[in-house]
Amino acid sequence: MTEPISTTAPTEPRASRPQRERTLKSKKTGPDAAPGIRGATSIADGVVEKIAGMAAREVPGVHALGGGFARTMGAVRGMVPGGRTSVGHGVKVEVGERQSAIDLAVVVEYGFAIADVAAEVRENVIAGVERMTGLEVVEVNIAVNDVHLPYEEEEGTPEGRVQ
């Protein structure tokens, strides 16, 4: 024998309705919502370059950043009225959503241990970039391009017979 088929649709239990409302309330928007769900933040490569450049220059023993040509162009730019030298010279970065990689070209002052200066630059750059941006710094590669000798002229010093 066959059992009769019910034609009435099953009703939703009333207990599940308040639970669904609680779920909707937990995804608040407005001033009470967590900042992480109220928008996105993107950080440009140039921002990380500036932070890394400033952090590297803070280390004792770092004379300048950049290779010879970049430093020359920076000195020329600094002599032009209204021109400014960029703190990002000698810094290249790759920025992802959560991580960054940094390459630095450094000129070290004569008399400083290059390995010690490089280690301190690496630590300072990582700390500065991670603190200011929240990005994880996966690597800081340092290329020491030159050693600044005490008797070498400063870049940007005007040359001429009369000073």
Score class of each variant (00 low, 15 high):
150 P>N: 10
2 T>C: 00
133 T>I: 02
100 S>Y: 00
38 R>P: 03
36 G>D: 13
3 E>L: 15
47 V>P: 05
38 R>V: 06
2 T>P: 02
24 L>K: 08
1 M>S: 14
134 G>W: 01
12 E>R: 15
40 A>M: 15
82 G>K: 00
8 T>S: 04
157 T>K: 15
73 M>H: 04
44 A>Y: 07
99 Q>W: 01
53 G>M: 04
152 E>T: 07
149 L>R: 13
36 G>W: 10
22 R>I: 10
54 M>Y: 09
138 V>C: 00
50 K>Y: 03
12 E>Q: 12
3 E>M: 11
124 N>W: 07
5 I>A: 08
45 D>K: 07
154 E>I: 06
39 G>Y: 03
81 P>V: 01
125 V>D: 02
142 I>P: 00
141 N>W: 01
39 G>V: 01
118 A>C: 15
41 T>E: 01
102 I>P: 08
38 R>E: 13
48 V>E: 02
148 H>P: 01
85 T>M: 14
156 G>C: 05
148 H>C: 08
147 V>M: 03
90 G>A: 01
92 K>P: 00
139 E>L: 06
92 K>Y: 02
53 G>I: 05
158 P>G: 09
63 H>V: 13
84 R>M: 08
101 A>P: 00
65 L>A: 01
157 T>S: 14
107 V>Y: 03
108 V>G: 08
71 R>Y: 03
109 E>H: 14
138 V>H: 00
110 Y>E: 13
94 E>S: 11
135 L>E: 02
123 E>M: 11
129 V>E: 08
111 G>F: 03
47 V>F: 01
127 A>K: 12
36 G>N: 15
33 A>F: 04
79 M>R: 14
113 A>Q: 12
7 T>N: 07
123 E>N: 12
59 V>Q: 04
138 V>S: 05
60 P>Q: 12
142 I>K: 00
124 N>C: 09
112 F>D: 09
9 A>K: 11
110 Y>M: 05
104 L>R: 02
15 A>R: 11
2 T>F: 00
132 M>L: 15
69 F>P: 02
113 A>N: 12
31 P>D: 04
116 D>W: 06
54 M>V: 15
125 V>N: 03
22 R>Q: 12
57 R>Q: 11
146 D>S: 05
8 T>E: 08
40 A>E: 14
152 E>D: 09
11 T>E: 13
69 F>S: 07
11 T>N: 10
73 M>L: 10
157 T>M: 14
57 R>N: 10
159 E>A: 15
94 E>H: 08
26 S>K: 11
4 P>W: 05
28 K>Y: 07
71 R>W: 02
142 I>G: 01
42 S>C: 07
49 E>D: 05
59 V>Y: 04
52 A>R: 06
10 P>H: 07
155 E>K: 11
131 R>Q: 15
99 Q>H: 08
161 R>E: 12
50 K>N: 12
92 K>R: 14
46 G>R: 08
29 T>F: 10
119 A>E: 14
73 M>W: 06
85 T>H: 09
74 G>I: 07
27 K>A: 13
56 A>H: 07
